[in-house]
Nucleic acid binder design. Structure first.
Lengths: 177, 177
DNA sequence: AAAATTACGTCAATAGTGCTGACATAATTT
DNA sequence: AAATTATGTCAGCACTATTGACGTAATTTT
């Protein structure tokens, strides 16, 4: 019994740094940034008994009023069952309403109520504040650049999901490439 | 029974856009970017029966070999219990080893094994590739700018966690403010 | 030296989010 | 009429996270 079950690999004492050209710095920053980015709304959501999933649904229902359940599933990349509970809670608490689709009556178009819009705004406010502060801190005027970078981080096939958003209609035209 | 239980708020049909100066565009892009950023390693992890939590532990153990359990908890911002299972699995599978702290023998210093380092690299590779591609797509040369922005997104009190990383020792000095 | 604190491990119970698979219903399409 | 589609729901399971409690060993304080 002098040695343990597996060969018990020896400890490596040197930090991984930017070995092999891997960009650990940005990988790690992305983790930290997202961790804190979500922490603000998480605290508000807790007061409502909601979680991050509720936030995401609320966000997209407000951004694209009238989207259907199937479209929402596609954007969130989760399963029907995962959405079901969360959506039901939002409907039961009068944050979201369902309307029968005008053309296809099988579809349920999702709309925020005034209550749902107010909550979406309350959740977005601290996040937007954080973004504004970060843009200032990091030598602003680069908003478009940050936007393009984040967009480029998204899977190319899925960028279509982004281009649906209404912001693009307000004459920004920072990229219809 | 002409009306439902609650006043049943009316549907709002207009998109939330950038109402009240809220930066919904970047909020949403951050969600999409992070969703896809984590999807690459998630697939690899599935082969090992690991999840995202394993990745995070593996990442930081490789980035700061010798960190203690308490330090890791502080960085990940999770509870001891949440870490316990994940860490145990990584130790049992010989990805991470614990050494008794040299000064304080209560502490357990965490180190990656060769196996653990290899996995950390394998997980980081697609992420780094995605970052490189995004920097190119979005008119690169702005790496430092992106880095500063992400850093500024982190809670100021917690930025100390970032400044520990070894990358800063390699003479980059883009900010010891 | 005794007492308090600290670092860590573990146990129990619970919540939130996600998954797969199966099945039902209503509406639309073929 | 039959097949397909959009949605809802049920059962069961996995992973990550939570709080609270307790135990042990080591260090620090008194």
């Amino acid at each position: 019994m002098t040695d343990r079950s597996p060969p018990a690999g020896k400890p490596i004492r040197t930090a991984i740094a930017d070995e092999d050209g891997i960009d650990f710095a940005i990988i790690e920053l992305f983790f930290f940034a997202y961790r804190d980015f979500t922490s603000d709304p998480d605290q508000i959501l807790a007061d409502y008994g909601f979680g991050r999933a509720h936030h995401r649904v609320l966000h997209f229902v407000n951004r694209r009023p009238g989207l259907t359940v199937a479209e929402l599933l596609d954007v969130l990349k989760i399963t029907k069952q995962s959405l079901a509970r969360v959506l039901k809670q939002l409907i039961d608490t009068d944050h979201v309403v369902q309307l029968q689709g005008p053309r296809d009556r099988r579809q349920r178009e999702l709309y925020p109520t005034a209550k749902g819009r107010a909550l979406a705004l309350a959740l977005a406010r601290p996040q937007s504040r954080r973004i504004r502060a970060a843009l200032e801190d990091s030598g602003a005027s680069e908003r478009a650049l940050i936007e393009r970078f984040l967009e480029a981080m998204v899977d190319p096939e899925l960028r279509a999901q982004i281009d649906i958003v209404p912001a693009k209609m307000s004459g920004k035209s920072h990229g219809d490439h």
